[in-house]
Amino acid sequence: MIQDFRRLKERIKSIENTRKITCAMEMVSAAKLNRVKGAFLASKPYFSNMQRVLFSFLSDIEPVSHPLLEERKERKTAAVMVITSDTGLCSTYNNNVIKAAKEFADRSGREKIGIIAVGKEAFVYFKREGYFVANSYLGIHGKFSEEIAADITKTLTNMFLTKTVDEIYIAYTHFSPNLRHKPAIEKFLAIEYEKKERQYYILEPGKDIILNGLISKYLLAKMRLVLLDSLTAEHSARMLAMKLATDNAKDLIDTLTLLKNKARQAAITKEVLEIAMSAEALRG
């Protein structure tokens, strides 16, 4: 009885500690989410304008030939860039995007695909499963940086231009405000564009300079957006996971406290009973 009581007390204490940790992690994630979400939303207008201008510019100057727009006839190899987090504890965030990327890779033929892992979770998973991991970017730890976005864009563009791969896709997680984040796979290179109405643009200084400039700015803007989108989803998933953990701990503590009180009451009753019985015996 008294052992039960002590054991329960110990357990409650340890769960209370866990609860404190998950609660702190939840608050940290909330702060990080606020920052990255702001950056994500703020970078949307630039990207959508860039995309609109590039697409209508391309429709205007058709037929257009540029190495980054050219669909290769023979598609022997492809790269899939998978964006995950570096650490776990964010419920299904990593699983979902990894699963989507894996299905995509298996569908196009596993041996054709090179994985570019962003985040440790993707790196570890695809390495373990025996996929070819062509490149990896680890240690982002949920923090967006311009350098990383520029670096990845440059590397991917070079891979495509040197014909190391014939197509490049990005598997990332799309942030949704109702917390149902969905994994998405989008083509990064060659650039696919939808036709727009012809504008008959005046071009200054000239077609080629504008084309090159727009394409490189567009790719960078796209990479920024995709990374920020994933990071926003990551922090939001982590915050939710930690909130659930905190709530669970609270429930568990409540249940155990009830048990603890029962055990204590039982011990007291037993003691009183013993005293009463021995007093009875002495009198008799």
Partner: peptide, 12 residues
């Protein structure tokens, strides 16, 4: 210089 109803233009 750009004024209202300028012809469509893309400039670097």
């Amino acid at each position: 210089g750009i004024l209202a109803h300028h012809a469509p233009i893309v400039a670097g």
